[in-house]
Structures are given as structure tokens and as C-alpha cells.
């Protein structure tokens, strides 16, 4: 049986958005998407897609589905995984799927979508999304789908019904074996995701994503009640203004910086 992989991917505000373009609406408790900076596929999710494609490189009959949920999608952005080499893109698009402070809403919808996709051997997710950095959806998803789970992979290989996962530790690494079906989260240490090839981009252009609503995956929107409520959103107070040390030239500034740190008793 060919291996079946689902990778979850989230469309997020580009985390490289300059601080000057980052705006919030403190009354509506919303982050305002910067008009000048297009959204991106969450970076860790791209690395999860890369991990899936590496497995597909080794076993070409592997089927890779990329799954996302949201209220609306920038289609050129969300089609990138297809251009990279994924077989299928499934989007659950529904006005109810606002970016909830409670990740369990996303868990229920993703789990329902994965069940609808049928038998899946491996679910790969980015370790966290760069907006709220919750790192919760993958673990909740594993619980809801009854999958064994391990996190922060820098390498994922599949053989004989087992996933062999190289995990990143703060001071080293470990190898974890986990029987399929399983869920694995992927970290940036996996390496840069591949760039779409021209051929990939052309092929992606011809593939239409499958678009489902919340009802299509068998859920009632009214059942998606969040357990957390956002009650405040503010920009952080900026710290004390930086004192710039100047000198006749850069070297002189370096010397004066040393004297300044001594004066401030920091060294």
C-alpha cells in the first residue's frame, strides 16, 4: 500500500513583517494584516511539507495531501506546496474559522477533515505557527485522532510501518521510533524547504484545490465553542531608549562602548 501523508499548513502574516508595519486594533482585539506584505505559509509548515516530500522522494508512490483551514486564502500563496511537489491541496474555508485564541477549534476541524480524507499513515505538522506560537494543534490533533506523537523533528524517515524521527534537543538530539499511524512535528533544523521548480509551478497552476466548508467535514459550526477568550491585545511597552555611543570612527566608538559599560558597572 502506498504511504499516505497529510501535512497541515497555516497561512500566517509574514513573521518578517517589519515592526513598523505591524498594527493592531486594540478595540476589535485584532492584528491587522499589513497591506504591503503578503501572507506566507507558516515556515515550520513548509519544513513539514519538505519532510513529506523527502519521504516521497524515497518512495515516489507516496501521496502527500496539504491541508489548511481558514476564513479566506491567498491562493497563490497556498498553492506553493503543490508547486513544491505535493499531490493535493485541501482547504477548509469557512467564515467560522477565524483565528481563535483556543487551538482546540482548529483541532476539531482538522481532525474532521483528516477523517474525511480516509486512512492516513502519517500526519506532519510544523512545530508551531509563527503568529501565536501555541504549538498545540499538532498535539491536540494526535489526541483527537488517537495517533502516537513526537515533536521537533529534524529528520523523518519511514520504513516497515515505523517512523524513525531524529529530534532536536537543547544540547543534542535523540532518535525516536513510533509505529504508524503517527503524527510528527517538524522544526527548522530539518533545513530549508525546496523551492518550486518551473515545472512544479506549471503543474500546480493546473491543479484546483479541494474546498470544503465546516459542514462538509461533518461538523456543526455551533459546536466550535472556544475555551479561551481574548480579552486584551496591546503592543508591548518599549524599553528605555538606546544610548548610541559615537566616536571619531567605528574603532573609537568601540573603545568608548567598553568605557561606558565599565562606568555602568556592566563589566
Amino acid at each position: 500500500m502506498p504511504l499516505r501523508i497529510v501535512v497541515t499548513a497555516k497561512q500566517v502574516i509574514d513573521p518578517e513583517t517589519p515592526a513598523s508595519a505591524f498594527r493592531i486594533d486594540p478595540q476589535a482585539l485584532q492584528v491587522l494584516p499589513p497591506a504591503s506584505v503578503p501572507p506566507v505559509v507558516n515556515g515550520f509548515d513548509e519544513q513539514a511539507i519538505e519532510a513529506a516530500l523527502q519521504i516521497k522522494d524515497a518512495a515516489p508512490d507516496t501521496h502527500v495531501t496539504v491541508l489548511s483551514i481558514g476564513t479566506s486564502f491567498a491562493m497563490d500563496v497556498m498553492k506553493k506546496p503543490l508547486a513544491m511537489g505535493a499531490d493535493e491541496l485541501v482547504l477548509v474555508q469557512d467564515d467560522a474559522l477565524v483565528n481563535s485564541p483556543d487551538p482546540s477549534v482548529a483541532v476539531h476541524v482538522l481532525a474532521a477533515a483528516i477523517r474525511k480524507l480516509g486512512d492516513v499513515d502519517l500526519v506532519l505538522c510544523g512545530r508551531q505557527a509563527s503568529d501565536w506560537d501555541n504549538a498545540q494543534v499538532p498535539l491536540g490533533l494526535a489526541e483527537e485522532l488517537g495517533l502516537a506523537v513526537t515533536t521537533i523533528a529534524k529528520e523523518v524517515a519511514v520504513e516497515n510501518g515505523l517512523a524513525r524521527v531524529e529530534r532536536v534537543l537543547p544540547d543534542g538530539s535523540e532518535t525516536v521510533e513510533i509505529a504508524l499511524p503517527a503524527l510528527v512535528t517538524v522544526s527548522n533544523e530539518l533545513g530549508q524547504a525546496r523551492y518550486p521548480t518551473l515545472r512544479g509551478i506549471m503543474a500546480a497552476g493546473r491543479k484546483a484545490p479541494t474546498i470544503w466548508s465546516v459542514a462538509d467535514v461533518g461538523l456543526d459550526v455551533s459546536s466550535l465553542t472556544p475555551g479561551l477568550e481574548l480579552v486584551g491585545l496591546a503592543l508591548p511597552e518599549s524599553g528605555a531608549a538606546c544610548e548610541f555611543i559615537e566616536g571619531e570612527d567605528d574603532a573609537d566608538a568601540g573603545r568608548k562602548l567598553a568605557l561606558k559599560l565599565r562606568e555602568a558597572k556592566l563589566v
Partner: peptide
């Protein structure tokens, strides 16, 4: 709290020497 806006290759050696 403190900063130098300059080329680190020039700032750093002098900073280290002074320290």
C-alpha cells in the same frame, strides 16, 4: 541600553582591546 551603529569588524576589536 547601549549601542554602536557601525561596522562590527572595526568596532569589536577596539572594544575587546579596551575591555
Amino acid at each position: 541600553r547601549f549601542g554602536v551603529a557601525g561596522d562590527w569588524q572595526k568596532v569589536l576589536p577596539a572594544f575587546i582591546d579596551q575591555l
